[in-house]
């Protein structure tokens, strides 16, 4: 069955590394739902969060292909139940007169923050998982969204370490190489 996998990819901070990752996914026909890139806890390393849609074996193949890129140090397929995911959205919502206070109230319900205001609009930032953001946006649409920008997903596993090591991949998950 097709479903979304969240891949956390630790990469060396090299020129063109984003290009290499995206180009690989394109040419092997893997679908990227979203991608985010930023610094990681290690100097010289970046962490990408890729949301990839596909059958389990397709995503496994994507993972193995990613490992073949020289800059890719580690790929972790984060299981949904075992990971926290976050997205961020910024919206400019029409808000004047009576609706202004309704927007502010709703923002509070969703734990969102007002970043800026004009006489006719409010700029609001919300973070949460995909569903919370979707639900927040549904509410804001009622008032009229003038502009919106949404980040890709970032994610982190709950366990103290990653869930999938390179050794698992190299023997197709049957035994770890360290055995």
């Amino acid at each position: 069955m097709q479903h979304a996998h969240t891949l956390s990819v630790l990469v060396e901070d090299q020129p063109g590394v984003l290009n290499r990752v995206v180009s690989l996914m394109r040419r092997r026909s893997f679908n990227i739902d979203s991608i985010t890139v930023g610094h990681s806890e290690q100097p010289g390393m970046s962490r990408m969060t890729l949301v990839v849609r596909g059958e389990d074996n397709e995503v496994e193949q994507a993972t193995k292909q990613l490992y073949k890129l020289l800059e890719v140090v580690k790929v972790t397929d984060l299981p949904e139940a075992d990971a926290i995911t976050r997205e961020m959205v910024m919206v400019k919502v029409a808000a004047k007169g009576q609706s202004r206070s309704e927007v502010l109230q709703l923002a509070q319900v969703y734990g969102a923050r007002v970043l800026d205001a004009t006489p006719t609009t409010l700029m609001i930032e919300a973070t949460g998982d995909e569903h919370q953001i979707d639900s927040f946006l549904t509410m804001m649409r009622v008032f009229g969204i003038r502009e919106m920008v949404r980040s890709g997903k970032i994610a982190m596993g709950r366990s103290s370490a990653g869930t999938r090591s390179r050794a698992d991949v190299s023997t197709n998950g049957v035994y770890a190489a360290a055995d």
Partner: peptide, 14 residues
């Protein structure tokens, strides 16, 4: 490179 470590010797269990 740290990130490039081809597996040369197979796992004996395999």
């Amino acid at each position: 490179r740290k990130s490039y470590q081809p597996t040369i010797t197979p796992n004996i269990r395999q």
